[in-house]
Write a protein that binds this DNA or RNA. Structure first.
Length: 255
DNA sequence: ATGGTCGGCAACCGA
């Protein structure tokens, strides 16, 4: 089984890259974030022509999540309200005994801001939701854009960003609680080296060429799945294509 | 080298 996650930064702008990628990689599951499209405008026809089912939850202009799958998902849920706000940041479903949860965690703007508090509460609420609805002993995938780098290995300038948004101890502490509950960071299970990133800010001149990036996209899995993980890969080629997203695909294969 | 990012969506906001 092959699973991937990709912050598309608009599924419509990225449709050529996504369809090409589906054709070449043929994943069983593809988690997408920042689709930036309302449900009525979701490009479900091209996705179906590529041989995939799609479930999605979008909104105007911002956010938006989707899961593309070879087999249809059941028991789809799309709501995870935090502070009474229900943005399109969460979608979950089931494929047989496998549970899949796709998230687009708030970016957080600036440490100390209301948006940063919202990010922390959103992560804490996601953890509560996971702990209340799933078991560490059952197969669960939790993947997406978490907007948090965990260690000095996970961004190009740890000293420069220490304590800033995306690299703050309060964010990292909540992610650690997901691991404490029983989820495993599949990339880090296989790769011990640094300088391996999934996001490069468009605003940094030649940021991708200079590999000035962050590892903020994750595929997490409970132990029964993690033990079956055989390989993981960051697809840098998709970031080097014409009109790339600022993120790229993170891919994991399971027996 | 006197410039320097995207996407959505129609003036800026968010990343």
């Amino acid at each position: 089984m092959k699973v991937a996650t990709f912050n598309a930064n608009s599924i419509r702008a990225r449709l050529p890259i996504i369809l090409d990628w589906l054709g070449r990689e043929a994943p069983d599951l593809l988690f997408l974030q920042e689709t930036k499209v309302q449900d009525v405008d979701f490009p479900d026809n091209p996705v179906e022509e590529a041989g995939y089912h799609a479930v999605f939850r979008g909104q105007k202009t911002y956010n938006g999540v989707a899961i593309l799958s070879k087999s249809p998902l059941t028991d789809v849920e799309t709501e995870l309200p935090v502070q009474g706000i229900d943005e399109a940041r969460f979608i979950s479903g089931r494929m047989g005994t496998l549970h899949a949860v796709n998230v687009y965690v708030p970016q957080g703007f600036e440490v100390g801001s209301n948006k940063f508090q919202y990010k922390l509460q959103w992560l804490a609420h996601l953890l509560e939701h996971v702990a209340a609805h799933y078991e560490p002993s059952s197969p669960l995938l939790l993947a997406g854009d978490f907007n948090v780098a965990l260690t000095d290995l996970d961004l190009y300038d740890p000293e420069g960003f220490r304590g800033e948004v995306g690299f703050h101890p309060d964010e990292q502490a909540i992610l650690q609680q997901f691991f404490g509950w029983g989820l495993v960071d599949i990339f880090r299970r296989h790769v011990k080296e640094g300088n391996q990133y999934t996001f490069w800010d468009y605003r940094i001149p030649n940021g991708f060429k200079r590999n000035m990036g962050w590892r903020i996209d994750y595929i997490l899995a409970t132990a029964p799945l993690a033990e079956r993980s055989r390989s993981v890969r960051i697809d840098r080629e998709a970031r080097a294509m014409e009109k790339p997203s600022d993120h790229t695909f993170l891919v994991a294969e399971f027996d």
